[in-house]
Structure formats: C-alpha cells, structure tokens
C-alpha cells in the first residue's frame, strides 16, 4: 500500500475551486516536486496532505490512516509526530531567537532540548546565527531556520512550500544538497513545491498542476 493516497480531492473556497478532484499516490521515501503556475492549487494540496487543511470532499490516507476523518487533537498529533512543514512565507515566532524557534517545535512534539536544536541549526549552516531573532536575519536564513525546525522531530513526511523561494543559487544548492543527504540517510518522504526549474531537477518525480488538477506526472531521469 502506498504511503500517501489521495482520492478525488476537491477543495472549494466559496465559489472558487482550489482543487478539482485530485487523485494520486506517493510511495514511502519518495521525493516529489510539484510545479505549476501561481494559483494552481499547489499550496492547498500540500496543506491537505499535511493535515493542515481539510478537503471539501475526497479522502486522504497517510500511512494507511484516513487523516481527513481525524479529530482535531488527533490531527495535531499527526502533524507533530509525522510531518515537518516549511512554509512559503517563513513563519517564525518574532520574539524567539533561532534556537528557541526550533525548540518550540520540539516542545510541542515532546520537550525542548537546546543541544539538539543547536545541532539542527548547525546542519543548515546557521551555527553563527543561533541567538538572532527573525527580524535580524535575512530571508534565506529565516528559511533555513524553518528547514531545521521542520526536521528536528524526525518527520516521516517533509512538506516544503517553495523553501528556496528567497534564496540565491548558492544557498539553494546548499539546501537541496542538505535535503538530499538527509533524505538518503533517513528516507523520509519529501513533497516540495517550487517554481524553479533548477529545483525541480532534484528528486525523483515531478507533478505539474494547473487550475486545481494534475496535468502531468513524470519521473525525473538523472
């Protein structure tokens, strides 16, 4: 059985359709890139897979669990135990510094551990920015905190919404290499949304979306 199964997902915002019946499967440990024009429903799809949003109709299974039927608290549990999110706009708590922002994710997962948080930030090359608050950091650095935060709880599913959107080629490459390394070590599943053809070359499979449905689905041949 596939790790993620979507069955005819429809998401409506009032009269607008963000998703018009998406069905697909993703295998465990796969790295999937999603591409498509703005407004095609990429973020919406990602949110629904990550249990952050619920579909208007259709079914979502992750690890065999039908997550669109979970109670709110169970969904929260699913999020903290199974997923790591990197958002399009890097969302960080403004009054916490880099380490504390990572620790916050640990806190909701189990308990805060500063040593581990420092380790996670070191992995993304931020060991010199540990005590900086988000407002004192560049967009790229903020995004890297988000990646460290998303990975600190050993998720089985990493959902990244344009994680490299604000980064230069150099940093983008660094992040992608980091992801690739971790992915090959820990075998978590990655779903990554991007506009950038360079980014979409990484990974194993590319989904093209348009107007709320999947237009093409192809493996990447290195």
């Amino acid at each position: 059985m596939s790790f993620i199964i979507l069955k005819n997902i429809v998401k409506e915002y009032g009269p607008a359709h963000a998703l018009r019946g998406v069905s697909m499967e993703i295998q465990k440990g796969q790295w999937v890139n999603i591409m498509g024009p703005s407004g095609s429903g990429k973020s919406t799809l990602l949110n629904i897979i990550g249990g952050l949003d619920t579909p208007t109709s259709g079914e979502v299974f992750v690890e065999g669990i039908k997550i669109n039927a979970l109670s709110e608290d169970d969904l929260a549990c699913f999020r903290r135990e199974k997923t790591g999110f990197v958002f399009q706009q890097s969302h960080l708590v403004p009054y916490l510094d880099a380490v504390e922002n990572v620790m916050l994710a640990q806190y909701f997962h189990s308990m805060a551990d500063e040593e581990e948080a420092v380790g996670a930030l070191t992995r993304v090359g931020l060991e010199h920015r540990l005590k900086h608050r988000p407002s004192q950091l560049s967009g790229g650095e903020q995004q890297r905190i988000c990646i460290a935060r998303a990975l600190t709880n050993d998720p089985v599913l990493l959902l990244a919404d344009e994680p490299t959107g604000n980064l230069d080629r150099e940093n983008t490459k660094m992040i992608l290499e980091l992801l690739k390394k971790l992915h090959s070590e820990e075998h978590f599943t990655i779903i990554l949304v991007t506009h950038d053809p360079f980014v979409s070359q990484w990974g194993e499979r590319v989904l093209m979306m348009e107007d709320g449905s999947i237009k093409s689905d192809a493996p990447i041949n290195p």
């Binding site: 640990q106 997962h109 189990s110 308990m111 551990d113 581990e116 600190t152 709880n153 050993d154």
Partner: peptide, 12 residues
C-alpha cells in the same frame, strides 16, 4: 532509533 524518539520517551 532517533533522537526525537528518545526525547519523547523522556518527556513521557
């Protein structure tokens, strides 16, 4: 197996 898991047991 993983650090996060250990952290979870400790928290428990």
């Amino acid at each position: 197996r993983s650090v996060a898991e250990g952290r979870k047991i400790k928290a428990f």
